[in-house]
Design a protein around this nucleic acid. Structure first.
Lengths: 178, 178
DNA sequence: TCGAACACGTGAAAC
DNA sequence: TGTTTCACGTGTTCG
């Protein structure tokens, strides 16, 4: 009951240990206050409080930035996922098979990153613009135009440009039909 | 020298105040530990340490995200800043004024955000593609083509599409000249 | 003279 | 069994 910590020698150990612990905490406080910008009060409570606010602020900012970058890609890619160009069911698609053996190699080589096709769509009133950057394939334009026209859209203008050796850039402007 | 805290009644005030201060600190510690994810140890030193690491991590992440989003716009806009399309020195720019009174209203309404013109450029080998989404102005295409040709680029293909009432979408493919 | 903030030594609880 | 961590009361300093 009376004396819990008996040996007087180990008592100083306790003091020393506690001293070390406090010093470690102080260092952490200093370190924390050094990375939190705009700190006015340097007392512990304020450091903790401002650090909490700061962390919440950073988390919010990250969430915004991530949503922002997400949207920029999703807006452009969502159509690709839904109508990923229907596979060749046409029997006459083989008409161009022997056309150019070299192009097959380049198809696999160039722009091999799976980011293609890139599809971008934007709308203004009744006008819709669709821009597609895809691999050069026979019949793509017809397929795309058919797809577009089947979506209550009437083609107003279209353009296909070869770019590089193996890619096409298709730009289409259409109007929503009533 | 001997006794600093004299009055025994106010001594309890001191105790109470210190008690309150400690409680406030404890609350802050709990609050901080609650917003730092993946905390294993809940002791004060660890909370502070992990909070420091977490803050640094967030700061780094934000820096990356901001650079990432910066680049996506800078890549597209840098040309606009350097060669911001020369102002209209043409006197016949008013030729379309009486064309359609309704379109003026829509001009102000649609796409009024000052993000135009949008310029996107990409390169593949010697090919360069330039896409410009800008306001409809007489002579823009010629100006742009002249600008492009003055940059060691020879025009391979170009296309202009009206989109909406007041904007144009210009797509140009050019090749680097030796 | 208050009030706030801090570091210290100490006893106890947790593992 | 130690080692670690905590909360407490206290003395002291600063504005």
């Amino acid at each position: 009951m009376a004396a819990a910590t008996r040996s007087p020698s180990h008592a100083q150990d306790h003091i020393l240990a506690e001293r070390k612990r406090r010093e470690k905490l102080s260092q952490r406080f200093i370190a924390l206050s050094s990375i939190v910008p705009g700190l006015k009060k340097m007392d512990k409570a304020s450091v903790l409080g401002d650090a909490i606010k700061y962390v919440k602020h950073l988390q919010e900012k990250i969430k915004q930035l991530e949503e922002q970058t997400k949207k920029r890609t999703v807006e452009s890619v969502v159509l690709v996922k839904r109508y990923h160009l229907p596979a060749d069911d046409d029997s006459n698609s083989s008409s161009n098979d022997d056309d150019d053996s070299k192009s097959n190699v380049e198809k696999a080589g160039c722009c091999s990153d799976s980011t293609l096709p890139e599809i971008e769509a934007r709308a203004s009133e009744r006008d819709v613009m669709i821009r597609i950057h895809c691999e050069k394939q026979p019949g793509v334009l017809a397929k795309v135009l058919t797809e577009v026209e089947s979506l209550h859209l009437s083609i107003v203008n279209s353009s296909v440009m070869p770019f590089g050796n193996s890619t096409l850039d298709i730009t289409i402007v259409a109007q929503v039909t009533n």
